[in-house]
Design a protein around this nucleic acid. Structure first.
Length: 631
RNA sequence: GCCACCAUAGCUCAGCCGGUAGAGCAGCCGCCUUGUAAGCGGCAGGUCGGGAGUUCAAUUCUCCCUGGUGGCUCCA
């Protein structure tokens, strides 16, 4: 709908003749109207409002109430005014919407004066001159006409009754309770991180009032930054950040493809009116970004699910080919998270998510294959630089029927994980999955963020019409696993930076793994006499990100600058080194200073980075040629 | 989305009861040629986040907007 708000000293109108033959007659006493000191709302109902009249009316009502409050009036005039839109709703739906709007506003306690619909009218208006007195808005029912449907899932979540327990390695289930904000029912001694995770999940108690440390780090290190020129939660990556993110993306994709998934690529926007998608949205409590294309309304994908499902439904599949995996690294997935929920790299509106769906013939195969992928994800996170399983806590969510029938599977899962896990059981299946797990990173502020996650989906094959032919020649719907092997790439970076922040707090030198360090070797000449030699030295590190500090700063200053950048190897070159043919290397990880040859340093870096992707230095090699992206 | 708080130079921050701003770092210029976390001096840097209001006068008070942080809600 379109609304023009005018805060008026008065509005006076006179009904003339019918503009639409179909409208009823207006009684004599309603043919003239006058309102004093009112918010006059000229309103057009539009074509797209027809899809959700109640939603459109409610959205406008909220806006009217808000604007009325801003201008401190409770009197509102609704004035149907077709000329605000080039895509008007048909008269009948438009009248219905306006009537609903009028009722809604009355229900909100506003003094509503509605001017007749479908007539030519003359009017006189005196508009106040203050800055809020004139305002026009284009209003769409919340997240489009989908609000009602999406909120099925949101509502389901709200009334979702769940029970929390800790499952230990002996298969014993310890039911948890919340007393005075404390989680009880399990002896958390030696499981401090699990206690923090369970408390986060159950009590949501927040005592810390600090900015998460990774936010400062991501900016100081010139990796990532906010972009006020975009929408909140859409970040910009500087050269170093793009490198780190690109390496993580490549590494994750490499591991998933090695495991056997087929990489595909899908559109980032989808038709709201596609029947399978529409019904899928009901089971997925997300808030979407909405895009108006030239001829339809679309939403930006919030995962790779439907893109891959739409591919899978057209595939010709035999049981002999299962389990079978499709994979895409989504750059980006979009979720219009509420403003207050966004936080640095932990929670974004646009994020990069690897998403790998496996079609499985039956539940046994799904369970078995889930554990194959478990190992892929485990090795992946380990090789990204995490301590497994120490750096994470498992949240495993399961429906009661699944728990009862597959308790042994869940217990075996916990044993493989190697420490007690948090289990949430739901009485009913509210979502499309019967079982899911996440590996949660718990940060310094006791906030948990899910990285790796996998789910057993029992519904979507049917919804999307995905079938395979079984041994008997029958078409059957597969079970679908939804794995994000690392979770969002941004979250991997978040967790690495939070780990580094924990190192700082513990007095250890913070750093990224060598394969992810934007600069791996900084060659530092002691004085100008060695600058040329230093430049030549860099060429002897062809497969290493090495640069040269060719500034005229003091040696101390050059060392300090390199340390502030978390460079793992600082190679000092002075007269002595040139004479001996070695480098004097400051090794960040161990805080030692070692004399090494170029080959020895190269070998050490090669060992540190073995099996990980490599990308060249994304910046000029000479520091004097390099800009600062921010102070 | 709701509530609270924050926004001053590229960065980190001072700035009293309303009288249009200051430091350190970074940058630029010069001197120094440095032996393992800041050498010295100078210059230049501001629509005090944006808009409106109150006032003779607003960085300062009020309102709205934008962005950020925390809490609530949420996290598929």
């Amino acid at each position: 709908m379109r609304v023009l708000f005018l805060h008026a000293d008065f509005l006076e109108y006179e009904v003339k003749e019918k503009a639409l033959p179909s409208v009823g007659d207006v009684p004599k006493d309603k043919r003239h109207g006058r309102a004093e000191e009112a918010l006059v709302c000229f309103v057009s109902a539009e074509k797209r409002d027809e899809a959700d009249p109640a939603g459109a009316a409610a959205a406008v009502a909220r806006n009217v109430e808000e604007v009325a409050a801003q201008v401190h009036t409770r009197r509102v005039v609704l004035y149907p005014y077709a000329h605000l839109s080039s895509s008007l709703a048909a008269p009948d739906p438009a009248q219905a919407i306006l009537a609903a709007l009028e009722r809604d506003l009355r229900a909100r306690g506003l003094d509503v004066h509605a001017s007749p619909f479908g007539y030519y009218k003359s009017f006189t208006i005196s508009v106040k001159g203050h800055p809020l007195s004139e305002l026009s808005r284009e209003i769409v029912a919340d997240t489009g006409g989908e609000k009602e449907e999406v909120s099925d899932a949101v509502r389901a979540e709200a009334k979702l009754r769940s029970a929390w327990s800790i499952l230990d390695l002996d298969g014993r289930l310890h039911p948890l309770a919340l007393t005075d904000g404390k989680v009880t029912g399990f002896d958390f001694n030696g499981h401090e991180n699990l206690r923090r995770f369970a408390t986060y999940e159950m009590a949501k108690s927040r005592e810390v009032r600090e900015e998460p440390p990774h936010v400062r780090l991501m900016r100081e290190l010139e990796l990532v930054d906010y972009e006020p020129g975009s929408d909140p939660g859409n970040l910009r990556y500087y050269a170093k950040g793009r490198l780190v993110k690109g390496l993580l993306e490549e590494f994750v994709s490499q591991r998933v493809i090695e495991y056997g998934a087929m990489e595909v690529e899908c559109p980032i926007m989808y038709d709201f009116e596609h029947p399978a998608l529409k019904s899928y949205l009901n089971r997925f409590p997300a808030r979407q970004y909405v895009v108006q294309t030239p001829n339809k309304r679309a939403f930006l994908r919030f995962s790779a699910c439907f893109g891959q499902f739409l591919i899978a439904k057209d595939m010709v599949l035999s049981y002999k080919q299962l389990p079978l995996s499709l994979y895409e690294l989504t750059r980006y997935s979009f979720r219009a998270e509420q403003r207050g929920e966004l936080a640095g790299l932990r929670r974004l509106r646009a994020f990069t998510m690897p998403d790998c769906h496996a079609l499985c013939a039956d539940l046994d195969q799904a369970k078995e294959h889930m554990m194959v992928r478990f190992e892929v994800a485990w090795d992946l996170l380990k090789d990204c630089g995490f301590a497994m399983p120490d750096d994470f806590e498992v949240g495993l969510r399961v429906t009661e029927p699944f728990w009862k029938e597959h308790r042994e599977f869940v217990t075996a899962y916990a044993r493989r994980w190697g420490k007690a896990i948090l289990v949430e059981t739901w009485a009913e299946q509210f979502f499309y999955f019967v079982m899911k797990y996440e590996w949660n990173f718990v940060d310094a502020n006791d906030k948990a963020a899910a990285l790796t996650t996998d789910q057993i989906d029992t519904e979507n094959a049917k919804r999307f019409g995905i079938t395979f032919t079984d041994e008997t020649g029958q078409a059957r719907h597969p079970y679908i696993l939804h794995l994000s092997p690392s979770g969002a790439i941004e979250r991997v970076l978040y967790a690495l930076l939070e780990k580094a922040a924990a190192d700082i707090a513990a007095g250890r030198p913070p750093m990224l793994p060598v394969w992810l360090s934007p600069v791996q070797v900084r060659v530092v000449p002691v004085s100008v006499d060695q600058v040329e030699a230093a430049k030549a030295l860099v060429d002897r590190f062809p497969d290493v990100r090495a640069d040269v500090d060719d500034t005229s700063d003091s040696l101390n200053k050059k060392i300090r600058n390199a340390e502030k950048e978390w460079i793992p190897y600082i190679a000092v070159v002075g007269r002595r080194e040139l004479e001996s043919g070695t480098l004097s290397v400051r090794v960040r990880a161990t805080k030692e200073q070692r004399a090494m040859t170029v080959d020895a340093l190269r070998a050490e870096i090669a060992k540190e980075t073995a099996g990980r992707p490599y990308k060249p230095l994304p910046l000029p090699r000479l520091l004097t040629k390099r800009p600062t992206f921010r102070g």
